[in-house]
Design a binder for these strands. Structure first.
Length: 273
DNA sequence: CAAAGCTCCTGACCGC
DNA sequence: TGCGGTCAGGAGCTTT
C-alpha cells in the first residue's frame, strides 16, 4: 500500500533510470489496469524525453518533452522493478515495460491492478485537479488543517483519508499520526481544537519524513539486491497491532481494531481520546 | 453539498 | 493437501 513516503522513495529510485532519458520502447501486456491506458499510449511515449520525474500526493509524474505528462499511480499493490537484475525475464502481473535510452528496463508489476497510467495533455490537470495541499509543503500547516476541518462532521480518521482535504495520506500513516498525538480516530473532525490541529499537522509531517528517510535506506538494500522498488514494510507503532500492549510510555492500554467507512482503524482507547 | 457504502482485484491467511 | 471464506485497501462511483 504505497502511501506518500513509499511513492517518494520509488520516485528517487526511478530517477537515475528515467529522468533525462528517452522512452526507447514501451510495451503493454494488457489493455488496462484499473482504467484503460490513454489512447495511443505507447506511440505517444515513444521517443519522448522525460524532462522531469516528480511526485504529487501518491502520483508519480513524468513530464515529457512534448509538454504532456505521464501520470502513474501504484494503487495498493503496484511496484516498479529496474529489470536486468531480475531472475526471470517475465513474472506474472508484469503489465508495462519501459525501455529507456540510457539502457534501463523498467517493469511495472501490479497483482491487484488498482494502479493506473494515463497521459495528460499539456496543461490538463486530470485526476490531479481536486487534490488538497501536499502535506510536506508550506501549504499544509495547523492553521490550514484547522480551517479545512472546521465544518467536517466525519471522523478525523476518515477526513484525513480524503485526498481533497490533504493529499497523499493513506490508512497507515493517518493512524500512526493520530496515535502519536493521542487523538481518537473516532473524534468528529470539527471537534478538534486549534492546538490539536497544530500538533496533528506537525506530527503528520514528522511521520511522513521519518518514513521517507527509512525508505531511502531500505531502497539502497533493495535496489542492489533485485532492483525492486516496491513499497517497504516499515515497523508501525499502532497499525496492525490489534490486541497488543500500547507502546506509549506508561499507558498500559491495549490496541483495538474497529471499522470506519469500511477501513480498518487501530488505536488505543486508553490514551487516544 | 456531504457522507457513507459499494466496487474493482489477487494473494495471504484461517479453519476444517 | 485442498477448499471455501474472509480480509486488505485507493479512490472513483453510486446511493442516501
Amino acid at each position: 500500500m504505497p502511501e506518500l513516503p513509499e511513492v517518494e522513495t520509488i520516485k528517487n529510485g526511478l530517477m537515475p533510470a528515467m529522468q533525462g532519458q528517452c522512452f526507447k520502447h514501451v510495451q503493454l501486456n494488457r489493455e488496462n489496469l484499473r482504467f484503460a491506458f490513454s489512447k495511443n499510449f505507447t506511440a505517444r511515449l515513444d521517443g519522448q524525453k522525460v524532462e522531469k520525474l516528480s511526485r504529487r500526493a501518491k502520483f508519480l509524474l513524468a513530464e515529457l518533452s512534448s509538454g504532456e505528462k505521464l501520470l502513474m499511480h501504484l494503487g495498493m499493490s503496484g511496484s516498479f522493478i529496474i529489470g536486468n537484475a531480475r531472475a526471470k525475464q517475465k513474472e506474472k502481473h508484469d503489465h508495462v515495460i519501459f525501455e529507456m535510452s540510457g539502457g534501463a528496463r523498467i517493469i511495472y508489476n501490479d497483482p491487484r491492478r488498482f494502479g493506473f497510467m494515463e497521459i495528460l495533455e499539456k496543461g490538463e490537470q486530470g485526476r490531479l485537479a481536486n487534490l488538497g495541499p501536499e502535506p510536506l509543503s508550506n501549504h499544509f500547516s495547523g492553521a490550514v488543517l484547522a480551517h479545512r476541518l472546521a465544518n467536517k462532521k466525519s471522523p478525523i480518521k476518515t477526513a484525513l483519508l480524503d485526498q481533497r482535504l490533504v493529499a497523499g495520506l493513506g490508512n497507515i500513516y493517518v493512524l500512526e499520526a493520530l496515535f502519536a498525538v493521542g487523538i481518537s480516530p473516532k473524534r468528529p473532525a470539527c471537534d478538534l481544537s486549534y492546538e490539536e490541529c497544530a500538533k496533528l499537522a506537525t506530527e503528520i509531517k514528522q511521520v511522513l519524513q521519518r518514513a521517507i528517510r527509512a525508505g531511502g535506506s531500505t531502497l539502497n538494500d533493495f535496489a542492489h539486491a533485485d532492483g525492486n522498488l516496491g513499497y517497504f514494510q516499515h515497523s508501525f507503532l499502532v497499525y496492525g497491532r490489534k490486541g497488543e500492549q500500547c507502546l506509549q510510555e506508561k499507558c498500559g492500554g491495549k490496541i483495538i481494531q474497529i471499522k470506519q467507512s469500511g477501513r480498518s482503524s487501530f488505536y488505543c482507547p486508553k490514551c487516544q481520546n
